[in-house]
Simulated scan of single mutants.
Amino acid sequence: MEIEISSSIHLMYVSEIQQEMYDSAQRRGTGIAKRSIEYLSKKISEGNAVVATENGEWVGFCYIETWSHGQFVANSGLIVSPKFRERGAATLIKNRVFQLSRDKYPTAKVFGLTTGLAVMKINSDLGYKPVIYSELTQDEEFWNGCKNCVNYEILMKKERKNCLCTAMLFVPDNNKVNGVVSDQPENQYRNEQESNLSV
């Protein structure tokens, strides 16, 4: 399996990726924000995504988004093709997209919203901590992305203070939350050799 920063050569997979995002959300009954082919294509072309492939087939995908003028970064749309699940691909992809986020936006806080226990575990291993929603970006455009989620009504009834998703946040050492310097470790992938990303 190869895990690469995206480029235009990966556009051939965008339709399959989008369809699997939709199908997966339907099967689980939880929300993955629906994204258009155009939106995903732009992320891929600009190198703001990670694509895993094996023998010419797409294995998995994840992209980065920035909010609040680059103060926050989200790793979004993590998806693994059903054929390649249960092989650790999600962890490797998440590690690589986290590295991409930190390389491009070293001072940004990295956050995510998820209902998946596996993703929570991966995030925790990378140094994310569970937080309340007010610690996340308050960028309206981000929260508008939740409108496609089946749980959007719950989010709005709770005045965007909580929902069924768990909010998780990684704060770089040079950042502070509520005046307290983050004690989170530098992401562990830096201690691993790049060769571990290709298996």
Rank of each mutant, 00 (worst) to 15 (best):
N144C: 03
S134H: 14
T107M: 07
K109F: 13
D125Y: 15
L100T: 00
Y128V: 07
A118R: 15
K109C: 09
T114Q: 09
V97Q: 00
T107G: 01
Q99R: 05
I132G: 12
D125T: 12
W143Q: 10
A108D: 04
Y105V: 01
E135W: 13
I132N: 12
N144T: 01
R96N: 00
I122M: 13
Y105H: 11
L155A: 11
Y152S: 05
Y133T: 09
N151A: 07
V110S: 06
E140N: 15
K104P: 00
T137V: 01
I132R: 13
E153D: 14
K121W: 15
Y133N: 09
W143V: 07
G88H: 15
T114E: 02
P130Y: 03
K94Y: 11
K94L: 09
F142M: 04
V150P: 06
L117F: 13
R102E: 04
L155I: 10
T114D: 04
K109G: 10
E153W: 08
A118P: 14
V150I: 05
E140G: 11
D103T: 11
T115H: 07
L117N: 14
L100A: 03
T107V: 03
T114G: 10
P130F: 00
A90Q: 06
A89V: 07
C146M: 09
F111N: 01
V150H: 05
D103A: 10
M120N: 07
T91F: 15
K109H: 10
F111T: 01
Q138S: 14
E140W: 10
G112Y: 05
I154R: 04
G145H: 06
T137K: 04
L92G: 04
T107A: 02
A89R: 08
F98I: 02
R96L: 08
L113V: 04
L92C: 11
I93F: 05
K104C: 00
I132F: 15
F142G: 01
M120V: 08
N151I: 06
Y105N: 06
I122S: 09
K104I: 04
S101F: 03
V97D: 02
S124R: 15
V110M: 04
C146K: 07
